[in-house]
Amino acid sequence: MVIPVHDVNPTRRTPWVTYALIVANVVAFLSMPGIAGSVTGGSTLAELCRLEAFTEQYALVPRELIHGQLPPLVPTGEAGLGLRGPGCVLGPPAYDKWPVLSVLTSMFLHGSWLHLLGNLLFLFIFGNNVEDRMGHVGFLLFYVVCGYAAGYGFALLNSSSTTPLIGASGAIAGVLGAYLVLYPRARVWVLVPFLVFLPLRLPAWVVLGLWFVLQALYSAGEAVTEAGTVAYTAHVIGFVTGMLIAWPLKPGTPPPPEPGGILFGRQARRPSW
Rank of each mutant, 00 (worst) to 15 (best):
V5F: 13
R13G: 12
T14H: 13
V17R: 10
A28F: 04
S31P: 01
M32E: 09
G34Q: 09
G34T: 10
I35K: 12
A36Y: 08
G37M: 08
V39P: 08
T44I: 08
A53E: 08
F54Y: 15
T55Y: 05
Q57K: 15
L60I: 05
L60H: 03
R63N: 03
I66G: 09
H67P: 05
G68F: 02
G68V: 07
L73T: 03
G80V: 14
G80N: 11
R84C: 03
A94N: 09
Y95A: 15
Y95D: 02
W98I: 14
P99A: 14
P99D: 03
S102C: 12
F108H: 05
L109F: 02
H110S: 13
L117S: 15
L120N: 10
L123F: 00
F124K: 12
F126H: 02
D132S: 11
H136E: 06
V137P: 03
G138M: 02
F142T: 02
F142Y: 01
Y143Q: 00
Y143R: 11
V144S: 03
V144P: 07
V144I: 14
V145P: 06
C146V: 11
Y148M: 15
G151T: 11
G153H: 11
F154L: 15
N158W: 01
S159A: 09
T162F: 06
G167D: 02
G170C: 14
A171C: 15
I172F: 11
A173G: 13
V175F: 00
Y179N: 03
Y183E: 01
P184T: 11
P184G: 11
P193A: 14
P193H: 14
L195G: 10
P199W: 07
P199L: 10
L200M: 15
R201H: 13
P203V: 14
W211F: 14
Q215M: 11
Q215W: 06
S219P: 02
S219H: 05
G221V: 00
A227L: 15
G228P: 01
Y232R: 06
A234R: 12
A234I: 13
H235S: 10
V236E: 00
I237D: 02
F239Y: 03
G242E: 04
A246W: 03
K250L: 07
P255Q: 03
P256M: 09
R270K: 15
